[in-house]
Amino acid sequence: MAEFPPPVRRISSEQAPNVVDPATRQEIPEPIARALAPSYGPERLRIDEVSIHYAGSARPAVNRVTLPVRQGEVLALIGPSGCGKTTLLRSLNRLVELTPGATRDGRILLDGDDIDQLEITRLRRRVSMIFQQPNPFPMSIFDNVAYAIREQAMRRPGKAVLQPRVEKALRRAGLWDEVADDLGRPALRLSGGQQQRLCIARALAVEPDVLLMDEPCSALDPISTGVVEELIHELRQNLAIVIVTHNLAQARRVGDHVAFMYLGDLVEYAPTEELFTNPRADRTRDYVQGAFG
């Protein structure tokens, strides 16, 4: 880690994200170069013409999607159920490969390197994921956060090594003050919102570059949701975050850019305010105005 953030390699097929109306299959003429302007950090992750097929279904779940993810921004993926947003998200750390019969075309580049060339464990440490349902392991709070550190170490690290890193991760996840008095407590006794923040701390403990969040608040109450959204705001300073949500208000609150997907196609990608106030595609307008969902 000589230079941070690492330099971005130019990609041969540098091209604008496709903006296609899925109904007519015509490209929407206006280029979205504005959205591509590096208003945030350098590009960390590039989704390049990615298609994902599931065996036994004629339609691709994700159809030739191209998107950039930049350092320091939150990219929100929105769209109705079954539009492929979660599938796309899960392909970013190759978790989609766990689904039997799923195949992916196209490239995904992490800091310019094809993720298929990276060792899968290394990739998943750099591109970590938070799930819809909080999934703390059935062990103590401390062991949960220390889990990935322990697993990636050659020799079992001692408490002295772990303690500061666990504390740092818990502080970043905004959970430290609530659990500091008893880190030995079983994680499953925490409330739902605390469990989700524990999962975030667990992911942060190995200091990932990109954080993927799959509807992280859909199982949480409004107050916990607010806390987690606040957290996302703070975290993006040092990370690139991709969040899938079917909650439009949430996408508007936390997203810097929003990508609207429909039936596997990327319909529109734009800065958040622009997409919500002045969408270019009719379908986007209908969706954000609540005409369908």
Binding site: L95, T121, S128, N135, F137, P138, E151
Partner: peptide
Amino acid sequence: PRGWREGALALGVTRWRAVMSVSVRA
């Protein structure tokens, strides 16, 4: 729960370790 296993895998743990350290432990 599938979430435990996927959670472990998403943290960059090999499949074998995910099974041993999370599933078998559970």
